[in-house]
Design a protein around this nucleic acid. Structure first.
Lengths: 340, 340
DNA sequence: TTGTAAGCGTTATCAC
DNA sequence: GTGATAACGCTTACAA
């Protein structure tokens, strides 16, 4: 492996001069630059970023720690992060925790050891230990998608409570009185907020007695299980609210398997969509969060923290949701964008 | 930021002793180890991996460079890579090229600069420049999913030709005579091999005259466009073969939009599936590659190359496909696993 | 415009 | 069992 010294020697200059050519920094005469460039390509020289970062104390690397790489919501969010980081000259390391606090802890430890310049974190649970560790190392941090009890952090997320309220109100306006919700883990804010939004809509419309809510996991399997459970005894709801896209698919399959037609027997709505390119026929009535934008905005905020050029106060940025009425609740088969 | 020196000083030992504790290497008395551990937690010390890697010349990091992060085939493959690497103590950097040769070149350059221990590459095109650059740096390399013209490399991939032959033969056995195929980019081996398998089946069954094939891109949009084109003039095929899962979804949507019923008017089959947890109702007849296994096997091979403990000859490992008959070609609505 | 010297934080090597 | 020393490959700080 050629080093900067080999190049310098071959070009007849000092190592620092080679460094200046590589980094386009400082003044270099055209002649010198040419000489160096020739030497570089002759030796097939590749700069060693480890050495550079060790010395300069910057890695130009961000990390995105999230909970489910198979969920398109996060895949698209990840794209927003990557695109934005890339434009600003940062690379991104992606870490998937599968909603496990232990995996999260391990990844955070690793990322700090790798000296990443900043971290975007979708917390797996309500434990704020990772946040403390990160802040102890003075590594800039932005929390994504979820609220945390910890106070001094920046947060970028969607309006789970409002979106859930909107979906529930929509079902009530359709005439449904028995509406059940299946949600994610109890200590995850998106699961809790969606449940709260649902409850608020039910209570405001005199349906407090009919509230029927379940915590579980944000997976297809769990959506399937909870749905079977709900419809195995009376009174059976006429509408079902799945708190995320994967649970909704599980619910849809369960309803089919146990003989309930959607939307004829049961109306089904969901928080978050499955993107166009993975779906043959858009079918589900949903509210969706602007996941790409969430990733983008969080990354911009993180980079401004790294560059230290934004106001010191912590921010909580909440994005509104969009509503799409489709066939699963009796709407049209084609996509329809409705009132925000 | 505390360093190994601060810890050493506080514990009253030499830096190297701290290093030994961190890495569980060499002999350390229990008393010394305790002292060091106390100092570590007292200072909130986090080892600097950059410095370690610079000195030890190992980063314990692999890279997976692939072409489409939104395609579940690759998402699952990536999991196979990550799980396998993790067990062996390696981290993985994921890089998405969007089938762009330029992005691929940039990522390869970056990864070599990062001194990754090995690279798994799904080549974006037929250009072997990246392969040469990687091999010049003596960085172990395994090619994934696709053949390349370059000779001295290890390859792990699925049997595209055989799978395509099988799907086509299946359609012919159903009685179809006019079968069209829509495939991916011309210079991508999986696109070419699937087209070849299709042609072989057609020719062996006296249907050479009816061959109708199109190159395009492995995307939903392209599947949609090509399907519209094919069905805009006579003779219209009675069966359509989409060379990947996303193209198949595009085809399905196009057929619906222009008024053809699947499978009544047109039978549709596809190479690669959409996984269970993203699909409400499994519908498409497919052959699938064991994508998780592909990632796993490739990673094992790469790690054995890094450790230099496998035979020097280059390997080409080809995985067989599995066949699932479903409703899109007139099969049952539930999943059915058929003859391999 | 170019160069010298020192040091980033760790571990390999050798010594005790 | 433990430690002194040098070195990994680069860039910062300062000098010429």
């Amino acid at each position: 492996m050629a080093t900067i010294h080999n190049v310098a020697k071959l070009a007849g200059v000092a190592p620092i001069t080679v460094s200046r050519v590589i980094n386009n920094s400082g003044y270099i005469s055209d002649k010198t630059r040419k000489k160096v460039q020739v030497a570089i390509s002759e030796l097939g020289y590749v700069p060693n970023i480890l050495a550079r970062s060790l010395r300069s104390k910057r890695t130009n690397t961000l990390a995105l720690v999230f909970t489910d790489i198979t969920n398109p919501f996060f895949t698209i969010l990840a794209r927003g992060v990557e695109d934005t980081a890339s434009i600003a000259g940062f690379n991104v390391i992606f870490c998937n925790t599968d909603e496990s606090q232990e995996k999260e802890d391990n990844y955070i430890q690793l990322l700090l050891q790798k000296q990443v310049d900043g971290i975007l974190l979708v917390p797996a649970g309500s434990n704020t230990r990772s946040i403390k560790v990160i802040q102890e190392q003075n590594t800039p941090l932005v929390i994504l998608d979820r609220r945390v009890s910890h106070s001094n952090v920046d947060i970028v997320r969607g309006d789970s409570e409002g979106g859930a309220y909107q979906l529930t109100k929509y079902l009530i306006d359709l005439g449904h009185r028995h509406i059940a919700i299946i949600s994610g883990p109890r200590n995850v804010s998106t699961a809790e907020d969606r449940l709260l939004g649902y409850k608020r809509a039910m209570e405001e419309n005199g349906l407090k007695e009919n509230i029927q809510s379940y915590y579980g996991r944000f997976t297809q399997a769990c959506g399937n299980d909870l749905t079977r459970k709900i419809f195995s005894h009376d009174p059976k709801p006429t509408a079902l609210f799945a708190a995320n896209n994967l649970m909704a698919i599980g619910a849809l399959r369960a309803l089919r398997d146990i003989g309930f037609k959607v939307p004829d027997d049961v109306a089904l709505v969901s928080f978050d969509d499955i993107p166009e390119n993975l779906t043959a026929f858009p079918f589900m009535t949903v509210v969706t969060q602007p996941s790409y934008e969430l990733g983008k905005r969080a990354t911009e905020l993180l980079i401004s923290r790294i560059k230290n050029d934004s106001a010191p106060e912590n921010q909580e940025i909440i994005f509104p949701v969009e509503f799409f009425e489709r066939a699963s609740s009796g709407g049209p088969l084609n996509d329809t964008k409705k009132r925000i």
